[in-house]
Design a protein around this nucleic acid. Structure first.
Lengths: 303, 303
DNA sequence: AAAAGGCGTTCCAATATTCGGAACAAGCGT
DNA sequence: ACGCTTGTTCCGAATATTGGAACGCCTTTT
């Protein structure tokens, strides 16, 4: 029943279709908690949104394995709600209402607002690209980014999703999870060999996480993209892990994320990353501190 | 039908048409497109996302007027799906998955990609801020923006929603609607007097739209924000209106949007806007042309 | 201390909604 | 014309949703 970390407790029914990156085996995956009709509709939405091209009805039918009648109704509802858009050739695309939702989510986000000046400072001191991201299940969602070269559009990164197990940010965040939540996340993880350095098994990842937890920072040595390295540190807000915050109720609703400094391998050596590690940890702690102050249970009043 | 603003709507549940009911005259206005459970859940999501501060259960309960049990389940499902996030103090915030959805929606959007170079050109020639937006029901959703001063973060505008009836972009888009669709949009519109120049009634808006349709461009003379003026022109893709595209089926799935040049009143006179109007129309047409070529019914194969 | 009240949560019978197989209606290709 | 594919609609059966009521927990009042 956690807000973020809980990943399918191994329930049974409902073959939810969870699909991620570019094409690959489409075996129906373990279902998440029961979110009823909403979950089924969102599974369809996810499928269409994460495709690389507009999908037609039959394509979606093949991917979702839902009965045609049911699928048709789901798609129809999603289109009516503006979450999907149906083109003149009947193919489905992500709908524009998704942008409106995200605009609110992003502009209202406290962690992003609080972290921003710290990210600027970190960028100023390192000269390389700085990211802020948060962990969701097995993935990192990028919340903000600071970089000098504006050639690549800034916003093109925000909201982007990357696997946690092969990115500095992801590993840093994972290292801050409580054992229970880490185990849940690891159980849902699948290892795709992006580069020669990518972790290929739970064992090697766990060993890496142990070192990261010990040192307080994570290094990504071309594990996700070749020629790209980064150093990252975890940022947790609220209780972060899963201790009780107020009262006796066992709420575990903190956010686990992290910050990172990323650069091309030819310019950023492993030694350079080590040299930055202390700074990155300090900035991460500063953000967590500010968040603890500004994000307290009573952050409503002071806005 | 709205599913956006209002949820239970007080005591509306009478309008249910039971099977076996005798004569049901088609008097039901605008036919509440039933999106079932999904629509109800999204109404709750909308409520929380569009609030200015995190809302607690009782707050939402008061706003939604849904039974507590039902509302609690909806919120629970939304949180489990990552569309909402529940903080340690139990207040609900927009969830991070919304960002991931929007990132895909934005980065995949063809209209935005096609329009980008044209927006750059328009910005280069005018020196003022250029917007691209699309119409959804009664609102304009901003898809892209080009401006020189980077003080305000670029992405802070993307996904933002503004009323259509008092913005240049919105009025331009409305002017391109078919009579039937325009009427539907006007019926759902409510007029809030943002400034002294804001349209206050359907009559004055319709008169304005007639002039806009005739001239091919729309002027916003401080109708939404004081000291802000803009000139806009509509952009339609596909059939745009609601003619049949292929075959006999009456699909009306084109996108209606527009582009605009915006600037502060002290720098951008009404005369200046008129002088730019031809250029804006040309650029809008160029975008529509490119979209017609690059967005054809068979854009799947060539990607 | 006890009572009263607010808040979030859980329970469960009634029922409205979804499910999903099958039939239907249009294209598309041969 | 024919078969085949694709998208849509139908309707009994299955089930998720509904919503009133009760339950803890905590805070405030008496």
């Amino acid at each position: 029943m956690t807000a973020i970390g809980d990943i399918g407790g191994g329930s049974d029914r409902g073959a939810r279709v969870e699909k991620g990156e570019s094409g690959e085996s489409g075996e129906s995956r373990a279902a998440a908690q029961d979110t009823g009709t909403l979950g089924k509709a969102l599974a369809v939405l996810d499928l269409v949104v994460n495709a690389d091209v507009p999908l037609r009805f039959t394509d979606i039918h093949a991917l979702s394995r839902q009965p045609r009648g049911t699928l048709h109704r789901h798609l129809s509802h999603l289109v009516q709600e503006g979450l999907l858009f149906q083109r003149a050739d009947l193919a489905y695309e992500p709908g524009l209402r998704l942008l409106a939702f995200a605009h609110r989510a992003w502009s209202r986000n406290d962690l992003r607002r609080i972290a921003r000046p710290h990210l600027d400072r970190l960028h100023a001191e390192t000269g390389e690209t700085v990211h802020l991201g948060v962990l969701r299940k097995t993935e990192i969602i990028y919340l903000d980014k600071v970089e000098s070269r504006q050639t690549v559009r800034m916003e093109s990164q925000i909201g982007r999703v990357s696997p946690a197990y092969c990115t500095g940010l992801g590993k840093a965040a994972l290292s801050a999870l409580s054992p229970a939540r880490l185990e849940a996340s690891l159980a849902a993880m699948s290892y795709h060999p992006f580069t020669a350095n990518t972790h290929r098994s739970k064992g090697s990842l766990v060993a890496d996480l142990d070192r990261i937890r010990e040192k307080g920072y994570a290094i990504d040595a071309e594990e996700h993209e070749v020629e790209i390295r980064c150093v990252a540190a975890p940022v947790t807000t609220g209780d972060g892990g899963d201790s009780a915050a107020t009262g006796n109720r066992a709420y575990q609703r903190g956010v686990i994320g992290g910050i990172s400094v990323t650069g091309p391998a030819y310019r950023v050596t492993l030694g350079q990353l080590e040299a930055w590690s202390g700074l990155v940890k300090d900035v991460a702690n500063a953000i967590a501190h500010d968040a603890a102050v500004g994000l307290g249970p009573v952050s409503i009043g002071d806005m």
